[in-house]
Amino acid sequence: MLIRAYDDSDWPALCRIHDAARLDELRDSAGLDAFLTLEQTAEGEGLFDGQLWVAETDAGVTGFVALDGDEITWLYVDPAHYRRGIGRALLRHALAHTGDHAEVTVLDGNPPALALYRSEGFVVQETRTGPLVGNERFTATGHIMRRQPG
């Protein structure tokens, strides 16, 4: 697996990955009716505000991670490639580019994401319920997690 900087030619793959994985993320949190495509949300949610990397395997681009300062703002893996270490590799790559502390928000109802972040030293610091970022017509509960090196 190669983790490299995003290139504009990766856009179709990012859309495909996000749109498939986002359904899994929303299913047990805000609900599937809250789904919006990456094309609809990328700019408003700041996908390109910081650093953006993709994971490339023999199957092509299979995941991506975005980092804005010390906040991991996006991390998605193609559902056809779940549980193969891609998400962990992307997370570790992003963490190598953070300062002393890293932060992420994980939707309640997404146990695989919570488990991944916990296994990498993240701890829930706060839980908030409010408008779903990117589709504020819906309510969601998010766990703000922080990691301190150690």
Rank of each mutant, 00 (worst) to 15 (best):
R16L: 11
A20G: 00
Y82A: 09
T129D: 07
D19Y: 03
A80D: 14
L47M: 15
M1A: 12
Y6A: 03
T73E: 03
D49M: 12
A96G: 12
R83C: 10
E126S: 12
E39I: 10
E120S: 06
T57A: 07
R83G: 03
T98P: 08
A20K: 10
H18L: 01
L23Q: 14
T127D: 10
L32D: 13
L26K: 06
A94N: 05
L14T: 04
G63R: 06
F35V: 14
L91P: 06
E43S: 13
A113C: 00
R4Q: 08
T41F: 00
L116S: 03
A140N: 04
L132P: 09
T57C: 07
I17E: 04
A5K: 15
N135R: 13
Y76W: 12
G130A: 07
L14P: 06
L2H: 10
I144Q: 12
H143D: 08
A59I: 09
A30P: 01
H81M: 14
R118I: 00
Q125K: 12
Q125N: 11
P79H: 03
P149Y: 11
T129H: 12
P131F: 00
P112A: 13
W11H: 13
W53R: 04
E120V: 10
S9E: 14
G63A: 10
R147V: 01
V65W: 01
L2M: 14
L47R: 12
L2T: 15
A113E: 06
T73I: 04
E39P: 02
A42R: 13
I144P: 00
P111E: 02
P111R: 04
A13E: 08
R27Q: 13
S29Q: 09
Y76L: 11
L47A: 15
P112R: 10
V124T: 15
I144R: 14
R16Q: 06
Q148V: 13
T139P: 00
Q40Y: 01
Y76T: 06
L107N: 14
E71P: 03
P111K: 04
R22P: 00
D58V: 10
T98R: 05
L36Y: 02
E56Q: 13
D24V: 15
V54C: 06
L38N: 02
T139Y: 09
D108T: 12
D10M: 11
L14F: 07
L32H: 10
A115I: 01
W11G: 02
T139I: 15
L2S: 11
V106P: 03
W53G: 09
